[in-house]
Design a protein around this nucleic acid. Structure first.
Length: 490
RNA sequence: GGCGCAUUCGUCUAGGGGUUUAGGACACCUCCCUCUCAAGGAGGAGAUCACCGGUUCGAAUCCGGUAUGCGCUACCA
């Protein structure tokens, strides 16, 4: 195989869609798997849809996921420039060449005429497509149009008959009848190329070996192949990836929830989990392996194992996988990962700054309970608040009354007070026998204490939680709990 | 309307003529562990392999048709 060169060619028209990022991942994996190059090319040929800052966001997302590029924005490369808006001369040159060869022509049709033509076609339920009105214009007709000041577009002169065949690494051999293709626009009247022109020119000039992109481009391939043929260029290999769908099986879009990869960062998904999850959307190693590290992914990735059916983005599975990755972190790594999210919360953020040690003690208690990093601040909130806020009846456990609960807490109070070493072992050694003494089940006593101390019925294990909280806070909270209980009876 | 593609548990998927009582994972349910929640362990339920026909001794796997879905059909990518 010749040197592998793949590219990711986003257009900066908005946020980085997870579907696009998945495409980037596959192209990156393929390049890395074969020791090739991964190139980023910005397809900014649609002036009207260009969005400020989009390029930065896209690049930032790739960096976050660890998808590094060998050529492209910021790093340069000998095939640059990597922004199509800076390569206009190349497209004009090729367009001119095709015109001279008789493989392309100027079209002076107005948008209105095209629109009417389309409406007419729809009305008569005819195949849509350009009617080739300007295909055989004479020199005089053209000079006349030019004199009128009409700026033409350039259309490709698609062969009227014959077939165009090509092989796709994922879909196999595909055949299209040329007469179902119309004379598409290559160069717009604003001087910018359309996707089709810019794409084939750049992929050729940049010596791209494998075009790995989404399935939605599959039906454009014959057009591209026709252009490659007219130009005498060797077409690259094609590999079209199956689509990513929303839960209702329609193209993944905003109404399906988070579609921008940036939202996954914001919600606290780990890049490793995201990469692993995305890789499994349309690709699999075998019938059982789910968790694969970046290195394993690179080592095993192959286009042969890419599926041909569209995949629905399954949020539940992502959550599970993110949990797996969170649990695999060391305490230090988890702290590093969670810190930025903690900083976004006022109380947790203050704690990180004023007593990092305290926070470092807290985090292990929620690590195996968190599905996302953004969740950590919420899970640990009770460690940071001054006053707990909860419904008093949460203190009263199963088969317990207000009195028995008060009694239990009151008995525990002085004993905790007297405890010399306030760690998990000592607490357990103290509280288990206490439950027996009070004639309570451990769940009853511990439940009351848990609510008193955390304000919740679901929390990390009690003894560790109390130990981290410290004797002072625990006693204060138990006192507050007793207050609530007595206030209840009035 | 035309062209193209796809269709295996709710979801992601394995399996590509006999080894399949169609395997795994998420989600769901039960039980175990257990101070709650998680995590972990053991089970369970869940797929007439879209449908119809054909080829074959034998089809989820090959072929044809139908249905459904998706993509393209822009001076958007």
């Amino acid at each position: 195989m010749t040197k592998v060169r793949t590219r990711f060619a986003p257009s900066p028209t908005g946020f980085p869609h997870v579907g696009n990022i998945r495409t980037a991942l596959f192209a990156w994996l393929f390049a890395r798997r074969h020791g090739g190059s991964f190139i980023i090319r910005i397809e900014d040929t649609d002036v009207a849809r260009r969005v400020e800052g989009a390029v930065e966001t896209i690049l930032g997302s790739l960096r976050w996921l660890g998808l590094d590029w060998d050529e492209g924005p910021e790093v340069g490369g000998k095939y640059g420039p990597y922004f199509q808006s800076q390569r206009l001369d190349k497209y004009h040159e090729i367009a001119q060449q095709l015109i001279s060869q008789g493989d392309a022509y100027h079209c002076y049709c107005s948008p209105q005429r095209l629109e009417e033509m389309r409406a007419e076609q729809v009305r008569h339920k005819q195949p849509s497509g350009y009617d080739r009105h300007c295909r055989e214009l004479s020199q005089e007709e053209r000079t006349k149009k030019e004199a009128e000041g009409i700026i033409p577009v350039v259309r490709f002169k698609t062969p009227l008959e014959g077939q165009t065949k090509f092989n796709d690494l994922i879909w196999g051999e595909l055949v299209f009848e040329n007469n179902t293709l119309d004379d598409f626009i290559m160069l717009k009247s604003d001087g910018y190329p359309t996707y089709h022109l810019a794409n084939i020119v750049d992929d050729h000039l940049m010596e791209i070996s494998h075009i790995i992109r989404a399935e939605e481009w599959l039906s454009s391939v014959p057009r591209h192949v026709l252009m490659y043929q007219a130009l005498g260029f060797e077409p690259p290999n094609f590999a079209h990836l199956p689509m990513l769908l929303g839960a209702d099986r329609s193209k993944l879009s905003k109404r399906h929830g988070a579609v921008s990869i940036t939202e996954y960062y914001e919600q606290g998904y780990l890049p490793e989990a995201m990469v692993n999850f995305l890789a499994l959307l349309g690709w699999s190693l075998d019938d059982r392996t789910e968790i694969l590290s970046r290195q394993e992914l690179i080592k095993n990735f192959s286009l042969e194992r890419v599926s041909r059916t569209a995949a629905i983005f399954n949020r539940d599975k992502l959550n599970w996988m993110n949990g797996v990755y969170i649990r695999s972190l060391t305490a230090d790594e988890f702290f590093e990962a969670a810190e930025p999210y903690l900083m976004m919360d006022r109380l947790a953020g203050e704690a990180v700054i004023s007593s990092e040690e305290y926070v470092r003690n807290i985090l292990p208690l929620v690590q195996e309970r968190a599905k996302t990093l953004a969740e950590v601040a919420e899970l640990t909130q009770f460690f940071f608040v001054e006053e707990l806020d909860y419904a008093p009846n949460l203190l009263i456990g199963k088969n317990m009354s207000q009195e028995s609960t008060s009694e239990a807490l009151k008995t525990a109070q002085p004993r905790l007070e007297q405890l010399k070493v306030f760690d998990a072992e000592s607490l357990e050694a103290l509280l288990r026998p206490l439950a027996v003494e009070l004639g309570l089940k451990t769940g009853q006593l511990f439940g009351a204490l848990r609510t008193a101390v955390t304000g919740r019925t679901a929390a990390p294990p009690l003894f560790q939680t109390m130990a981290v909280l410290g004797k002072g806070r625990c006693l204060k909270r138990i006192e507050a709990a007793l207050d609530r209980l007595t206030r209840m009876s009035r």
